[in-house]
Amino acid sequence: MECYRWGRAKTLNRKKQHEQTVALLPWFVNDTLDQKEREQVLKHLAGCEGCRLERDRLIDLQKMIREGEVVDGDVEFSLKRTMKRIDEAERNRRSVEEVATNHRRQKRFFVSMAMAAGLSMFLVGMAVLVGNPDEPLEYQTLTADAPGQGSTRQMQIGFVDPIPAATLRQALIETESNIVSGPDRQGVYLLEVNVPGNVSQEVFLRRIQDIEGVKHAAFTP
């Protein structure tokens, strides 16, 4: 029984080896097997007539394939065509980049315009605030500053969109205010503003806060 099992195992092993060799033969023929596989194939070939025949057939097939069907492509024509294609692709790429650059420029332009518009509203608001003759007079104490004289206060002001410093400066000159410092990391400016004498500081501050584009405004203590 043991002998039978051993014999069967040996047969199965030989069959497996045969199948592996058959599968590897094309690469044995083209000489790309690694050393171990090559030795395994050689060992099997020594005892297998069928595989030796198959090897010889594959060698012939390889010879036929290598010798046959010479394909003459026109390299120069092909190269010229491909170079033209490369030129075209690069031109396209450049034009896409130009479009993208123009788009970025346009975007910057529109953002600047939007900021300028916002600033203009701020400017108009400040101007209205300074020169509004219809503002009702508020109760004044005897010790308060004389009407029309006004007072200077420092104010922190931040905007929804960043405003170019030069434009802001221009706006402030026209409203007789100054930039003390800023913008800081949060984009907040410290301004020195002239609060007109006929308007209370609270009203003045509220009006500043109500101007479109102003994120927050507060007098510094």
């Binding site: 599968a23 057939r57 012939d60």
Partner: peptide
């Protein structure tokens, strides 16, 4: 008859079974 054909075109031998043994794999 690849083998025979390569060796001597026009003088084709019978298939000796080498390639057909592939059926086992």
């Amino acid at each position: 008859s690849l083998e025979a054909a390569v060796a001597e075109p026009g003088n084709v031998r019978e298939n000796e079974g080498g390639m057909l043994s592939l059926g086992e794999s």
